[in-house]
Simulated assay, not measured.
Amino acid sequence: MTHLVLNNVSFQYPDGTQALENVSLEIPQGQRIALVGQNGAGKTTAVKLMNGLLKPTTGEVIVGEWNTTSKTTAQLSRKVGYVFQNPDDQIFHNEVIKEVRFGPKNMGFDLERVEEMTQWALELCGISQYAEENPYNLPYSMRKFVTVASVIAMDSDIIILDEPTAGQDKIGLEILGNLLETLESLGKTVITITHDMEFVTTHFKRIIVMANRRIIADDQAMTIFYQDDILTESMLKPPAVAQMAALLNIPHAVLSKKELIAYIKSHYQPLSSE
């Protein structure tokens, strides 16, 4: 089982920009976590430290039994798979299937497992029909799924998705939701950066909020989206359902459409047709 631990981690870029300050975090294997906050909060820096793309200026990042400072990014990719925010920064093959196949092949899987993981990842991401296409002939939303599939096929214990909801329509969000549930059922840890608060409340039990280069909250949605101080500091807007509940002066936390509709039906009488 691969635990992920950040112990009092800070990071400063070579130009002197301080990106993280004294961040401590523990993530057991198998959790599904949303990492939220405004641009510049430190989210992407934090996840790049998790897979070794960056090394901490101070503190330590532990992945399983490994300290990331003593391992290369290639070594860490066996434990931590990272999907970039921009798919065009990651895709370099001229066929979707070659792109997805590259990861497991490079990991040294035997040919049978390479094909098994490749086909499974394509199907899970809903892009099997595009296997022979050039990724750059696909729309942005589908290119994002190409990169997700290429990382999933590597069978890493920890998978980081940086803004996977960007540019997705309803069908794409449904595929992502099903994908998250499948990975969790397989014991994978999935850390997802997203600005889509509706997606967060629907698909994540644990939410980590970052602001001003540090973690300011680590809790469930019911707590986070009803704490004004957290929302103010992080500049996050609660999901639309919570905003509607506030307008209706509902005296308890509401985050699901089903619960909101039930409350309205029980407390408001329909207008008479007479």
Rank of each mutant, 00 (worst) to 15 (best):
residue 161 L to Q: 12
residue 213 R to P: 01
residue 160 I to V: 15
residue 187 G to K: 12
residue 153 A to P: 01
residue 136 Y to I: 01
residue 160 I to D: 12
residue 175 I to D: 06
residue 145 F to H: 05
residue 158 I to A: 12
residue 115 E to Y: 02
residue 182 T to Q: 15
residue 91 I to R: 09
residue 210 M to T: 11
residue 110 D to K: 08
residue 179 L to N: 10
residue 203 H to Y: 13
residue 156 S to V: 10
residue 209 V to T: 11
residue 172 G to Q: 14
residue 166 A to P: 01
residue 203 H to C: 06
residue 108 G to N: 07
residue 99 E to Q: 03
residue 104 P to M: 10
residue 197 M to H: 00
residue 183 L to T: 12
residue 98 K to D: 11
residue 159 I to E: 11
residue 150 S to A: 15
residue 120 W to V: 00
residue 94 N to A: 10
residue 160 I to H: 02
residue 99 E to L: 04
residue 167 G to V: 06
residue 135 P to W: 08
residue 216 I to C: 02
residue 198 E to T: 09
residue 136 Y to F: 15
residue 176 L to G: 06
residue 192 T to G: 05
residue 204 F to P: 04
residue 101 R to M: 08
residue 101 R to L: 03
residue 154 M to A: 15
residue 153 A to L: 04
residue 219 D to N: 14
residue 97 I to C: 02
residue 220 Q to K: 13
residue 89 D to E: 13
residue 142 M to E: 15
residue 178 N to H: 14
residue 149 A to H: 09
residue 178 N to Y: 05
residue 209 V to C: 10
residue 169 D to A: 04
residue 127 I to Q: 11
residue 189 T to A: 09
residue 142 M to V: 15
residue 152 I to D: 09
residue 146 V to C: 13
residue 125 C to F: 10
residue 137 N to D: 11
residue 156 S to C: 14
residue 104 P to Q: 10
residue 162 D to V: 06
residue 149 A to E: 06
residue 208 I to T: 13
residue 213 R to A: 09
residue 174 E to C: 03
residue 126 G to L: 13
residue 194 T to G: 03
residue 139 P to Q: 10
residue 186 L to V: 06
residue 163 E to M: 07
residue 107 M to D: 00
residue 209 V to K: 05
residue 211 A to L: 03
residue 214 R to C: 05
residue 134 N to V: 02
residue 139 P to E: 13
residue 196 D to Y: 02
residue 208 I to N: 12
residue 169 D to K: 01
residue 98 K to E: 11
residue 150 S to P: 00
residue 177 G to S: 15
residue 164 P to M: 09
residue 185 S to W: 02
residue 183 L to R: 11
residue 196 D to I: 05
residue 152 I to R: 02
residue 105 K to Y: 03
